[in-house]
Simulated scan of single mutants.
Amino acid sequence: MYISITPHKLSESYGQSVSDFVDYLEKENEGLPLKEQEHFFDQYNDHVSPKSVIDHIDANTTKLKKVEPKFYAITVSPSTYELKHLQDHGQDLKRYTREFMKDYAASFNREISGNQVMVNDIVYYAKIEHQRTYKGADVQVRENAPFRKEIVKLQNDLLKINRGELSGIISQIEARIGKLMEQVPHKINGKLIDQGMKKEGLQTHIHIIVSRKDASNSVSLSPGSKYKASEVELHGKMVKRGFDRDQFFDKAEKTFDRTFNYQRNFVEQYASRKDFIKNPKDYFRALLQLPVNEKTIALKMLRETGLKIPSIPISQVQLAFKALQKIRKGLEMAVRSSSIGI
């Protein structure tokens, strides 16, 4: 599962309205019959209109400055394994979102009217999406870019030759294009993967819009706080502040497992991924000491990220240093792209 929390920005400034983001999230509904469309929802309502989302989030910004984020965008992307475990992606993830937001509220080191922050203090709207498209930053698009550039150039040359603007042998250029298409590292159904192309497989995920201010529009709740837990003097009295991301990510994972009775493999666990980043040798030692069945699944999961793992004897407890260094870079990328962000 991958979870990201970001303040919504427009270039160098924070968006003053949530309208553009809401419009973006509505695009997947275009052309779909009403019964197949996904709607915005909150903790208690299954169908909230886009206008209501915009009006509520935009109005809930008292005393926030232009240089401060008005709302945060949370994206929750379950893995293929997690999605395959669910019975109904839309309904199951809607149920999970409501439990997930309880974990979000509980991760604030804040009090509102003397009470710990609860989910009813959070102003949020969520939406389930079932498709994803490749973006410019995706490794597939970046690695395809040099091939695409050369292919486009050759295709433009063909057009110029046909218009008499350039001399050349068409068959040779077409053969060169064909050769480049064979060499392209990432394709779907024979087509070069490019920005904007839909991704294959299960892609259902959750978008959550969370107001910076609480439901009373008086308390600022920032998940971007650099503090896990601290106190500061404000207007003559001590006020708690902070957001514990580590606790939040851990709870979000455990809530998924508890809600759906999901048996999480070692490589999927938030705690083990932290171990990898802090001490990869211990991570691999623990991985190789797993029971055979669980270890087989773990290595399969790692290979499915595109990582090339050297052949490792089942009985081996430690990886050779060179083997560890060889795969560490690739696994680090896999961890960051397919797991909860740290």
Rank of each mutant, 00 (worst) to 15 (best):
P33Q: 11
P33E: 08
P33K: 15
L34H: 10
L34G: 02
L34W: 08
K35C: 09
K35W: 15
Q37A: 04
E38A: 10
H39M: 14
F40R: 06
F41W: 07
D46M: 11
D46K: 13
D46R: 13
H47A: 12
H47Y: 13
P50A: 15
K51H: 11
V53M: 13
V53P: 00
I54E: 13
I57D: 02
N60C: 05
N60M: 07
N60F: 00
T61D: 08
T61Y: 00
T62Q: 13
K63L: 02
L64Q: 08
K65N: 09
V67Q: 15
V67G: 06
E68A: 04
P69M: 08
K70Q: 06
K70P: 00
K70S: 03
F71P: 01
Y72G: 01
Y72A: 00
A73T: 05
T75N: 11
T75M: 14
V76W: 04
V76N: 03
P78R: 10
P78Q: 11
P78G: 10
P78T: 02
T80L: 10
T80C: 03
T80F: 07
E82F: 09
E82A: 14
L83E: 01
K84M: 11
H85G: 04
L86G: 03
L86F: 02
L86H: 03
Q87P: 03
Q87I: 06
D88A: 05
Q91G: 07
Q91L: 11
K94S: 05
R95S: 06
Y96S: 03
T97A: 10
R98Y: 03
R98T: 04
M101I: 07
M101T: 04
K102M: 09
D103A: 14
D103N: 13
Y104Q: 01
A105C: 08
A106G: 05
A106F: 02
F108Y: 12
N109T: 10
N109Q: 11
E111K: 14
E111R: 10
S113E: 15
S113A: 13
S113H: 07
G114S: 05
G114C: 09
N115A: 13
N115P: 00
Q116S: 11
V117S: 12
M118R: 13
V119H: 08
N120T: 11
D121S: 04
V123I: 12
V123A: 06
V123W: 01
Y125T: 00
I128L: 09
I128Y: 10
Q131Y: 10
T133L: 06
Y134L: 01
K135D: 06
K135T: 01
K135H: 12
G136C: 11
G136E: 15
G136M: 14
A137W: 14
D138V: 02
D138C: 04
